[in-house]
């Protein structure tokens, strides 16, 4: 590694670190601090780990934790796999690709609330999708109001909104792979499938790690579709932890409990992201000293 020129380090790091310290780290510190407080009879009171201890015996919290884990177990692999598939299609050179590339970019500019409003109409019992399914003699299904479907409908909406965005990062990553390598493998008779597994994916590892970490984070903290569509129901089947925290803090005014939930959520997230780093970041071939 290079010697570290102090001046240069300060110059390059200071703007970002200062910004993060003032506008992220400091507010985060205040938020963590808030998790040690509660309101009793209109007065703010320090209760140490009381909010956390309350969570231990809070059945709603544990149920919500299970929903969160299940939700993330499905949505993250699904989104990354679909985004990768889209990215591989996106870089193909075929007649008419320009049009498809354009269409793939559509969901990026649609904000999540608007996407949710549109999808609600699609998924209503008398809505668009049931209309189409009814045409082939299926349904009607209660996509948003049945405990069996609601969580998967939320996953579908978030995936629709999210995959194009992650696709862009993966397309960027594909650009960084030298085309000569793929070309060489092709000449040696490797099938497209082999080239994907043996060459593209390993070389895409840093980008995949980035997308996976960022995607997992965003999905762990996702609650807008739940908030707008199901309110955590039916029967608590879509009540993810972040929604539980949001409700506690902003609907019920119980900021202490909300922050305690957020801290637990982020701790869990850190463990998962740590595992992802372990599994994926060992890769880049380092030069031997």
């Amino acid at each position: 590694m290079n010697r570290s020129p102090i001046k240069l380090l300060v110059l390059t790091l200071a703007p970002a670190l200062l910004g993060l310290a003032v506008f992220r780290a400091y507010p985060i510190g205040l938020a963590l601090y808030e998790s040690l407080y509660t309101t009793i009879g209109g007065e703010r009171a320090f209760i140490g780990l009381g909010n956390y201890l309350d969570l231990l015996t809070d059945a709603g919290f544990w149920k919500s934790l299970r929903v969160t884990l299940w939700f993330n177990l499905i949505i993250n692999p699904l989104q990354v796999a679909l985004a990768l598939a889209l990215a591989l299609m996106f870089v193909q050179k075929l007649p008419g690709m320009a049009v498809f590339r354009l269409l793939f970019l559509i969901p990026i500019g649609i904000s999540l609330p608007v996407a949710v409003i549109i999808w609600r109409i699609v998924l209503l019992p008398e809505g668009f999708l049931n209309g189409v399914l009814g045409g082939v003699g299926l349904g009607p299904y209660r996509f948003l109001t049945s405990p069996d479907f609601a969580l998967y409908s939320i996953i579908a909406i978030a995936t629709w909104k999210g995959v194009s965005y992650w696709m862009i990062f993966l397309v960027g990553g594909l650009q960084n792979i030298p085309p000569e390598i793929g070309e060489a493998a092709r000449l040696e008779g490797a099938s497209p499938w082999q080239r994907l597994w043996l060459i593209t994916l390993p070389l895409l590892r840093p980008t995949l790690l980035f997308v996976l970490v960022a995607d997992v984070t965003i999905n762990f903290l996702l609650f807008a579709p739940v908030f707008m569509l199901t309110g955590g129901g039916p029967r608590g089947s879509t009540n993810v932890l972040m929604y539980e925290a949001y409700k506690s803090g902003f609907v019920f005014g119980d900021m202490g409990r909300a922050m305690a939930i957020v801290v637990c959520l982020v701790a869990l997230l850190l463990v998962i992201v740590g595992i992802q780093f372990r599994l994926l970041s060992s890769a880049p071939p380092k030069e031997t000293p």
Partner: peptide, 14 residues
Amino acid sequence: DAFRTAFTDIANGV
């Protein structure tokens, strides 16, 4: 919130 959850669930067959 508890009321809304209960009556939404009831409408959905709980």
